[in-house]
Design a protein around this nucleic acid. Structure first.
Lengths: 200, 200
DNA sequence: GTCTATACCACGATAGAC
DNA sequence: GTCTATCGTGGTATAGAC
């Protein structure tokens, strides 16, 4: 457990709990649908006390989204390290599994990001877009490599294929229950379907 | 142009414009992010005048969602009629094209439904769920038929496959620009990817 | 670092004139 | 069928005590 420099431990803890609560609420109701009172209630403080930690609601939401992207990037790096020089299918499978891990295994941040980003005010969205783009570029890069190696069907439109894959992965936050379902199984189904399709 | 029984033409027109405006706004901002004043502004009336046509904001939103489902069902029926007895691939392709048509070619209702449903109050969601389920059951039925005919790979998990396909189709509302892109092409890419995958 | 109190505004909704 | 006017509520945000 690291402590951010210049911050007391309990202060960092409060920040954490605020971000956690906001992320959870925003997944279900969208950004505009969540009041600061609701966030404060979950944390166990009064709404006004949020302003000791953040300058505005938008700042809280932006921090949630940024962290959601950090989590995805971290998961990507782990998968990349683990599959250095591996075959195309296991490599792809590892990255899909990592993305789903980011959505379900590392807090509510990535799920909040993918499900509520569109409902955020333009100012928040604009501030976060460069980070989003960087993550998406990693995926485009991976698929581009596979195409260059002749692993993809001729004429596969990489941009569209990536978007379709993202759609399949990201909408799982709307229906997949991490407590009941098996994440490995889910990852395998999505990977196989993306790679081979469903046809006999 | 049909006229709803017992309603004057201009009244029906106002209802329409209210629903149109609401659907468009809700796609971008989520339900909670749209104020009745914004809706009224688009229609060119005052917020209070909305209450001549609807009893509450929730009622407007619910009507938008219901209509979004009606549009999808209509598109499904057309595709089903046109592909009676056809081969599996063209049949599936027609239904995917129809779903995308519902999202982009028949007003903002279906797009509003798929992108903002989660952000609606529970009362609205509960009222609409049965209609959603009926539409989803059509898809499950189609995939089940294909499986029974041996057209799907052994062990294909129909429920999960359908959800992944829905994810790919429905998230297009977040990035596809119907004015610039080619919807036939988009439908074909999604169909081929679902059926055959991207592997060489 | 959290509290109470409050300012200010936007929201959904209603009443009643035209 | 739309308007003006208004009510009550709940939103973000600030001031200042503790």
């Amino acid at each position: 457990m690291t402590v951010v420099e210049g911050m007391a431990i309990d202060q960092y803890g409060a920040r954490q709990r605020i971000l956690d609560s906001t992320a959870e609420l925003v997944i279900e109701h969208g950004v505009a649908g969540v009041a600061q009172r609701q966030i404060a209630d979950r944390v166990g403080i009064r709404a006004a006390s949020l302003y000791h930690h953040f300058a505005s609601k938008n700042e809280i939401v932006e921090a949630v989204f940024r962290r959601g992207i950090d989590v995805m990037e971290g998961a990507w790096d782990e998968a990349a390290d683990a599959t250095h020089g591996a075959d195309p299918y296991p490599r792809l499978a590892a990255h899909i599994r990592a993305h789903l891990s980011a959505l379900f295994d590392h807090g509510p941040y990535t799920a909040a990001h993918v499900s509520a980003f569109r409902t955020a005010p333009a100012a928040v969205r604009d501030a976060v877009v460069p980070m989003r783009d960087a993550y998406e570029a990693r995926w485009t890069g991976l698929l581009g490599e596979l195409a260059a190696d002749g692993e993809l069907a001729n004429g596969t439109p990489i941009g569209l294929s990536r978007l379709a894959l993202f759609g399949a992965m990201n909408t799982t936050v709307e229906w997949f229950d991490a407590d009941r379902g098996n994440l490995d199984e889910l990852a395998e189904v999505i990977t196989r379907q993306f790679w081979n399709g469903v046809a006999a």
